[in-house]
Amino acid sequence: MQIDYGKPLPRISPDNAPFWEGCREGRLMLPTCEDCDAPHLPPGPVCPHCFSDRLVWREASGRGTISTFVVVHKAWFPAFAADLPYNVAQIELSEGPRLTATILDAERSDLFIGRPVTVVFLARDGIVLPYFRPATAD
């Protein structure tokens, strides 16, 4: 699935490149500390909890809940004007760190804090981005 050209793309850095490589493979990867076992976001060069250098990338469940969200009604950015209104949410992953992304297939009434969501991956302009969808009951 392709989305409109002209929207900003993430900046890939040495610290976050494995996150974006994981998305390309359909896997949500978290930098995780081998010393204190804590995952973190956004990806950094050291563990922000214990300052260890021993980071490894582990696959997350892709499940989480909406911790906060907004619905954008103003066209600050022309490339998004056709999408108005659209939501942007922060998702608290079940592993703990929070990620910001849009919740797909969600009306305003589907958006509430605590709502379970699951990750989906969509290609756009040569990169794959994580999005979320309201979770269906198990």
């Binding site: 900003p8 900046r11 954008v72 103003k74 950015f77 490339a79 999408d83 659209y86 910001t100 981005l129």
Partner: peptide, 18 residues
């Protein structure tokens, strides 16, 4: 558009730019 978004929680790839 800095690495990991802006300092007010901006996420430009998703249209949260202000």
């Amino acid at each position: 558009n800095r690495e990991e978004g802006g300092s007010h929680g901006e996420a430009p790839p998703y249209g949260l730019t202000a």
